[in-house]
Amino acid sequence: MNIVGIDVGYSNLKVAYGRNETPSPKTILRPAGAAPEDRFGSRLDGKDSEEFLRVVVNGKKFIAGVSPDRAQMWSRSLHAEYSSSESYQALFKAGLLLAGMEQIDMLVTGLPVLQYLDEQRKKSLINYMTGIHEILPGKIVDIKKVKVVSQPIGGFLDFISRSNEDIEDASILVIDPGFFSVDWVVISNDEIHKHSSGTSLTASSVLLEEASALISKDHGTGISAEMLENAIRQNKTTIMVLGQRIEIAPYLRIARKSIGPVITEEIQKSLRNENKMVDIVVMVGGGATFFMEAVKEAFPRLKILLTQDAVFSNCRGFWMLGAASE
Rank of each mutant, 00 (worst) to 15 (best):
M73Y: 14
M73F: 14
W74L: 00
S75M: 13
S75W: 06
S75A: 13
R76I: 09
L78W: 07
L78I: 14
E81S: 11
E81G: 14
S84L: 09
E86Y: 06
Y88D: 03
Q89H: 10
L91G: 05
A94Q: 07
A94D: 03
L96Q: 07
L96G: 04
L96C: 09
L96N: 11
L97T: 10
L97H: 04
L98I: 08
L98H: 12
Q103E: 15
I104M: 05
I104A: 07
M106F: 10
L107M: 15
L107G: 06
V108D: 07
V113L: 13
L114C: 05
Y116F: 15
Y116E: 10
L117A: 14
Q120A: 14
R121S: 12
R121T: 07
K122A: 07
K122L: 14
K123A: 13
S124T: 08
S124L: 05
L125A: 04
I126C: 05
I126D: 00
I126M: 09
I126V: 15
N127V: 05
N127Y: 04
N127T: 12
Y128G: 01
Y128D: 09
M129P: 05
M129H: 03
T130W: 03
T130E: 15
G131C: 08
I132L: 12
I132G: 00
L136F: 01
P137I: 01
G138C: 10
G138I: 02
K139I: 13
D142T: 10
D142A: 03
K144F: 03
K145W: 01
V146I: 12
V146T: 14
V146M: 12
K147C: 02
V149R: 10
V149E: 14
P152L: 06
G155W: 03
F156Q: 06
F159D: 03
F159H: 12
S161F: 02
S161Y: 09
N164E: 14
N164A: 04
E165W: 08
A170P: 05
S171M: 13
S171C: 11
S171T: 11
L173C: 07
L173D: 04
V174H: 06
I175C: 05
D176A: 11
P177E: 02
G178L: 00
F179W: 12
F179T: 00
F179Y: 15
F179C: 00
F179L: 00
F180K: 02
F180V: 00
F180S: 08
V182N: 14
V182I: 13
D183F: 06
V185L: 11
V185S: 09
V185R: 01
V186C: 12
V186D: 06
I187D: 03
D190F: 04
E191R: 15
E191H: 10
I192E: 05
I192P: 07
I192W: 01
H193E: 11
G198I: 08
G198E: 09
T199P: 10
T202R: 09
T202E: 13
A203C: 09
A203R: 01
S205H: 04
S205D: 02
V206P: 01
L207P: 06
L207D: 02
E209N: 11
E210H: 13
A211S: 11
A211Q: 02
S212F: 05
A213R: 15
